[in-house]
């Protein structure tokens, strides 16, 4: 896996992530990626409803949110989270990437969209962009690829 320059907050603390996906496997895979970004797992949720309570409990810097989930889907969860926490940074991570879905997610307050299978470098760039946009991280970080 590619190794990345650690994304840290301005206070030098690791960026904290909330991962929301009904697949344990997908959560584990994303957790590995954020570890390679130098991030810290603030919490996990397997459905949209749990994501809302986990967001309030953990106050993460960024949320990686699936769309198709039981109980409550990701787009509805984004709407609730952003209503309650207008500064929330949510990146949608889904295998279903058609325009209607992306537009709906963005209209509800999501900041970006990544289609599965997730390429770590692409996710890193998007997370960096979203965090820099809000002035959470320093803007001069570059991707470094580990040579094999």
């Amino acid at each position: 896996m590619k190794q990345f320059e650690a994304l840290t907050r301005k206070d030098n603390q690791p960026v904290r992530y909330l991962i929301v996906d009904d697949s344990v496997f997908a959560r584990k895979s994303l957790a590995k990626m954020i570890e390679s970004f130098g991030g810290q797992l603030a919490g996990e949720a397997g459905d949209g409803r749990t994501a809302i309570t986990e967001y309030a409990r953990t106050s993460p810097d960024i949320v990686l949110m699936d769309i198709t989930m039981p109980q409550m889907e990701g787009i509805e969860a984004v709407e609730h989270i952003v209503q309650q926490h207008p500064d929330a940074r949510v990146v949608m991570v889904s295998s279903v990437g058609y325009q209607d879905n992306i537009l709906a997610a963005l209209q509800k307050g999501a900041r970006h969209f990544v289609q599965k299978p997730v390429k770590p470098a692409a996710l890193y760039e998007i997370v960096r962009y979203v965090l820099n946009e809000d002035g959470v991280t320093a803007p001069s970080i570059v991707v470094r690829e580990e040579r094999q």
Partner: peptide
Amino acid sequence: CELANMVIGNAVTQLND
């Protein structure tokens, strides 16, 4: 399961578009 999700999701995206 996750692989199936990705395969079907990507195909559905193409069909939806």
